[in-house]
Simulated assay, not measured.
Amino acid sequence: MIGVFKVNSPEDITGKHILLVDDVITTGATLEACANVLLTTGATKVSIAALAFAE
């Protein structure tokens, strides 16, 4: 998942708390990759909400 996500307008998320919403978390790799990009681009905090978790 490295390199899949990109922030087009970093100024829109700089200093903000971002909520990522997913339907089902399986491995968490997608959410982790997305959160890492958001945090390295300027977001101060990333939270995750999901409806289900696959075991």
Rank of each mutant, 00 (worst) to 15 (best):
V46E: 10
V21N: 09
I48G: 00
T44V: 14
T44C: 14
L39Q: 09
A43E: 08
T30G: 01
G28H: 01
S47R: 14
L51C: 14
A29D: 13
L39H: 06
A29M: 14
D23F: 01
A29G: 12
V46K: 11
A50Q: 03
I48R: 00
C34R: 06
L51A: 11
T30P: 01
A50S: 09
D23R: 04
V37N: 02
T41C: 10
E32C: 12
L19P: 11
A52M: 13
G28F: 00
I48D: 00
T30N: 03
D22T: 04
A52G: 11
T41A: 11
L20P: 07
V21Q: 10
L20W: 07
V46A: 07
L38A: 07
V24G: 01
D22I: 04
L20E: 05
T30H: 03
V37F: 07
I25C: 00
I48T: 04
T44I: 15
S47W: 10
A43Q: 10
E32L: 14
T27M: 02
I25F: 00
F53W: 15
D23Q: 06
V46F: 13
T27N: 04
T26D: 03
A49C: 15
A33Q: 06
S47L: 11
T40Q: 15
L19V: 13
T44M: 15
L31K: 04
A54F: 05
A29I: 10
L19C: 13
D23E: 07
E32A: 15
G28N: 02
N36T: 10
K45E: 12
A29T: 13
I25Q: 00
L38P: 08
I25S: 00
A43N: 09
T41E: 06
D22E: 09
V21I: 13
T30K: 06
L19Y: 09
A50D: 02
L20I: 13
G42C: 08
I25E: 00
V21P: 03
A49V: 13
A50G: 06
D22H: 02
G28Y: 00
A33H: 07
T26I: 05
A35P: 09
D23V: 04
L38S: 06
V24P: 01
V37G: 02
G28C: 03
F53D: 15
G28M: 03
T44K: 15
I48S: 01
T40M: 15
T41W: 08
S47N: 12
G42Y: 06
L39A: 08
A29Q: 13
A52S: 12
S47K: 14
V24M: 05
L31S: 05
L38M: 07
S47A: 12
I25L: 01
A49Y: 10
A33V: 04
L51Y: 13
L20G: 05
F53N: 15
T26L: 03
V24L: 05
I18D: 04
V24K: 03
N36E: 11
